[in-house]
């Protein structure tokens, strides 16, 4: 069974430090939500409040419209996974998964059947008898996932579950978690500071900073239409252009404008509305090159822009440092912000 969660005007203060400031959220049943933000933004605190490990100073938390603010963790029926796996090192993988079941009045053969099913699901049937220290990091985290799912929780909480893993394992586990989450249709909340993780896994991303929610939306919405400079800057790379430069180059009327590096076009021929610039740096990035150019207009008008040029184009164009080129900033890709 999957549940919806509602967080309503929640605030949390730790000895004068405000960790959460009047945060409200609605999470639908079966949704995969990512809490994304820099460290200290309050995302982990929010997770702990949802788990019931801490109590909010103000506001309420609802599971399926039932107020659970004062309910202890044990009665909220959720599964949890940590960056550190937190597997019990003295128990075998099998016993770790069965840990939560042993406490319930379940027959041994039922426990066995369920644990076997979970191991099958995480594709680790061969590892049951091994101790955590005999498993790789990825395998340990999969066992931790199985353990979290063993008690058939209503929702799943993931606290940076992939941060301690190697890049390759991380990517394969992303898919694995998403697959299992979709399979079970389990409401899931994941805390992460890794934007790629959030963009690839989440149904919905909640970007947080300084104890408040900055923006929430699908990954596309967040990436394509950031509502404020923080979100724009935190997710992906971006060039900010301040008000004076905007006016100088006739770009837009707003307080502040921004454009993603891959949206800027670079060419050797001058087009209408393109700007003359000089290449300052070329950085090889594998499937694209990041080129730093300096647009100049008089003495005070220098404007540094990052431009991402796809690999194929790099091959044909062969840009060099010091070369004079023309940059085109498509007006429709320009993001405008009302605040600086």
């Amino acid at each position: 069974m999957s549940v919806n969660l509602r967080i309503s005007n929640v605030s949390k203060v730790f000895e004068k430090n405000i960790a959460l400031n009047n945060v409200s959220l609605d999470i639908q049943a079966g949704e995969f939500v990512c809490l994304l933000g820099p460290s200290g933004c309050g995302k982990s605190t929010l997770l702990r409040l949802i788990a019931g490990l801490d109590k909010p100073n103000e506001g309420s938390i609802y599971i399926n419209d039932r107020n659970v603010t004062n309910l202890p963790p044990a009665r909220r029926n959720f599964g949890i996974m940590f960056q550190s796996y937190a597997l019990f090192p003295n128990l075998t993988a099998y016993e770790n998964v069965a840990y939560g079941l042993r406490n319930k009045k379940m027959r041994n053969q039922d426990i066995e059947a369920r644990v076997d099913r979970l191991f099958h699901m995480i594709k680790l049937d061969s590892a049951k008898k091994r101790l955590p220290s005999q498993l790789s990091g990825g395998e340990q985290q999969r066992v931790a996932l199985a353990r979290a799912l063993a008690t058939e929780p209503d929702f799943l909480l993931l606290d940076e579950p992939l941060s301690a893993l190697d890049a390759k394992v991380r990517i394969s586990l992303r898919k694995e978690i998403c697959r299992i989450q979709k399979e079970l249709g389990l409401t899931t909340i994941m805390v992460t500071h890794d934007q790629d993780e959030a963009l690839t896994m989440a149904d919905r991303i909640i970007v947080m900073n300084k104890s408040v929610v900055m923006q929430e939306g699908t990954p596309e919405e967040i990436y394509e239409h950031p509502e404020n400079p923080f979100v724009a800057d935190f997710i992906g790379s971006i060039n900010f252009i301040d008000k004076e430069k905007c006016k100088l180059y006739g770009l837009c009327e707003q307080e502040r404008a921004a454009i993603r590096p891959e949206k800027i076009e670079l060419s050797r021929t001058e087009k209408e509305a393109s700007l003359r610039a000089q290449i300052k740096e070329i950085e090889f990035r594998g499937f694209y090159d990041r080129i730093t150019v300096c647009v100049s207009h008089g003495v005070q008008g220098d404007m540094i822009l990052l431009v991402d040029v796809p690999f194929r184009m790099v091959k044909t164009m062969q840009f060099r440092i010091g070369e004079v080129v023309y940059v085109n900033l498509p007006r429709e890709e320009l993001l405008g912000f009302k605040t600086a």
């Binding site: 788990a51 019931g52 490990l53 202890p72 963790p73 044990a74 009665r75 029926n77 959720f78 599964g79 949890i80 940590f82 937190a86 019990f88 840990y99 939560g100 406490n103 319930k104 353990r147 979290a148 063993a150 008690t151 929780p153 909480l157």
Partner: peptide
Amino acid sequence: FETVSESLAV
């Protein structure tokens, strides 16, 4: 460890 146990209602 303690958090995990709590979540598992142990």
